[in-house]
Design a protein around this nucleic acid. Structure first.
Lengths: 230, 230
DNA sequence: TAGATTGTTAATCGATTAACAATC
DNA sequence: TAGATTGTTAATCGATTAACAATC
């Protein structure tokens, strides 16, 4: 298993690159809308605060090709990034947990342009079952595995409270779902072929509040205590 | 500026560590609720799929101390992480954009336990101004700078469409806000002391759809085309 | 052509992991 | 005490950045 595919080398893309591609994409979409046809890594790097070489390297993973002295065609870049990220095909997904966050995600019309279409919503709460949310009917949770199998759904979104998240994940696995986008702050246990991506809302929060606390601290040390109120 | 504080060395925490701390925190909260008092890095590493040495190193940044042969006190860890992340003090924040996502965030009661209290909501839309959302009155956007200054608000949350995000950021800066949690997919331009943290919803999506696409591709190459429907 | 930009290889930097002494 | 675990220093690994030849 370790040396699988040793003839055709497997290129794995670095996580940081994968994280930056959507940033380029959004930036390029903007450029496109202003009518810009061609762009250089230098300009992109300046605008997004990335090293130009890094931009070039990131792009190379998508297979796009630029022209020396000219740059890259915006249209080329958009097309290649879309294809690379699988955003040119739409993945049908089931969402479980029709609370605040679930409702917000169900209403996100932009998802379709990013390869995601939420085609079903589920909940355990009797009060929510049968209701329409952003045009989608909320179904009973226990119907998920059967429907997922029948419809060939490969992507699941979990927006339930942490205590129920594992149970939901189990049902998704049972329904043949292959990738889970998990918004509940829990580490899910799933069989290895199933992919889990945690949306760590609290990470950003951690980063922000840590920096704010540090800022405060620095100020206090300098003797400007209480300057910023609070 | 470059060699500021050369006597008292400035320890900067690696981003990845900062990203993991909330994961430990959530895990430890769970442990605490089951009555566990003491835990070792080995166990944590096993449960969360991290290298035990890494766990130890991560903890060291918070200043927590363990006991050889025994491990760490769960209570100690929770306290130190809370303090390190600034979660023991609550930051008051203003949120702009009372749409689906904004509404969801306004309803997130768990934020208070993570150092965040959203004390004001703003919108440009006349139809939304004056309404109550999760107990908070939506105010007119132009009131933000004045109120932020008066109340000493240091944290801002942006949940408006990308086209309005920069304008909102400018108002926040005018109101003396020092850190921005940005959910709009745009790169904001703010003066350097102001911190911006982008919540990149599309990154996870990129990662997931890319992996799904790759999985599909691999399968297809093996000649099992069309197996998973779609 | 000259100069800007790509594409790639090499050097650097930082995070992860391994090794191991200290200790309860 | 013996063994498990911490805390730390050194080795490894991978991503970022620098250098530079190729090229339009």
């Amino acid at each position: 298993m370790e040396k699988a595919a040793d003839h055709k080398e497997v290129i794995t893309i670095p996580e940081p690159t994968l994280r930056r591609l959507p940033i380029y994409y959004q930036y390029l979409k903007n450029l496109e809308s202003t009518g810009t046809k061609v762009i250089s890594c230098t300009t992109i790097g300046n605008d997004l605060d990335f090293d130009p070489t890094q931009v070039r390297k990131d792009f190379s993973y998508t297979g796009v090709e630029g022209k020396p002295k000219v740059g890259y065609l915006v249209a080329d870049l958009l097309r290649e990034i879309e294809e690379f990220l699988g955003w040119n095909k739409v993945n049908a997904a089931f969402l479980v947990g029709a609370g605040n966050l679930g409702t917000a995600l169900l209403g996100y019309s932009q998802f379709k342009q990013h390869g995601l279409s939420i085609v079903g919503a589920f909940d355990k709460d009797e009060a929510k079952i049968g209701r329409l949310i952003h045009g989608k009917r909320v179904l009973a949770l226990e119907k998920l595995p059967g429907l997922a199998l029948r419809m060939g759904i490969r992507l699941g979104i979990i927006t339930v409270p942490p205590a129920s998240a594992q149970e939901v994940a189990d049902l998704m696995v049972k329904g043949g779902i292959q990738a889970i986008w998990n918004f509940a702050p829990v580490t899910l246990k799933v069989p290895s072929p199933v992919l889990v991506r945690n949306e760590e809302l609290y990470y950003s929060l951690a980063s922000l509040s840590h920096s704010l606390a540090k800022k405060m601290h620095t100020k206090t040390e300098k003797g400007e205590e209480g300057y910023a109120s609070n």
